[in-house]
Design a protein around this nucleic acid. Structure first.
Lengths: 124, 124
DNA sequence: GACATATATTCCTATATAGGAATATATAAG
DNA sequence: CTTATATATTCCTATATAGGAATATATGTC
């Protein structure tokens, strides 16, 4: 049984790091022609086209034809499922971080108290 | 050239929906024995073991041996890269939603103003 | 129309995998 | 020790894919 296709859903589409790179590039709000993506990411043109094809299929990018150019634009909202899914677990690591912080502060307090302790007199 | 292995990074590990289901289950904060996951998700035991193996490899779960039981625990913090990555784009759809909201409110205001406009007297 | 440029698509290939089936390994109980 | 239970792992298989190489398609310029 094969793995789910990369075009199954956003999760599968963005698993591939180069596609994440493309998304990051397009996130500046501008429309990008394919060749600019090629140059910026130093990937081969057919590779870029293929990746963009996947992203288009899952709705993460859209394309507008401008003469011989294909301008690609990010549809960021379609990344929301990933964010929403991961956000479900945010409270788990947030609490963890608070707990680590509390522990550090407690240790700092103990250290301060210890340093302000009057020193025992020399027995000598 | 093959696809990146599922154990390459968290993105690849969670691309598979059944693994996302397992993560959701373990997110209740408890330790889960394999068989409970099997029963709850109605998956075959070997399949669950394999998925857990992937998740363990990328650090998303850890396992404690308790006699003949293997208790699995979520390490949610290791999902943070996914959240952080998606969060990068949050402002893009948040602004979109605000804009949709503003437009709706403007339309509502115009409607209210229109409804409170004194009616033209009948010419009759 | 010839030639140039942009880009999508096809062909090819080695590789990884999810589940099914089977089996190996590890612990518990009597 | 035998039997039972929990679970990891192996073997098998059909499928999808990322990039390389090549090619097809679409638009621009003179």
């Amino acid at each position: 049984m094969p793995r789910a296709a990369t075009t199954t859903d956003v999760f599968n589409a963005v698993a591939e790091p180069r596609r994440r790179d493309i998304i990051a590039l397009l996130s500046n709000g501008q429309e990008w022609p394919v060749n600019d993506v090629v140059v910026r990411l130093q990937l081969a043109q057919p590779a870029v086209s293929k990746h963009l094809g996947v992203l288009r299929k899952v709705g993460v990018v859209t394309v507008v034809k401008r003469g011989q150019h294909r301008m690609y634009k990010l549809e960021a909202a379609n990344l929301k499922p990933v964010h929403d899914w991961a956000k479900t677990f945010e409270h788990l690591w947030t609490n963890q971080i608070s707990r680590i912080k509390e522990r550090a502060e407690q240790k700092a307090m103990e250290r301060i108290v210890r340093e302000n302790q009057p020193r025992p007199k020399n027995q000598k």
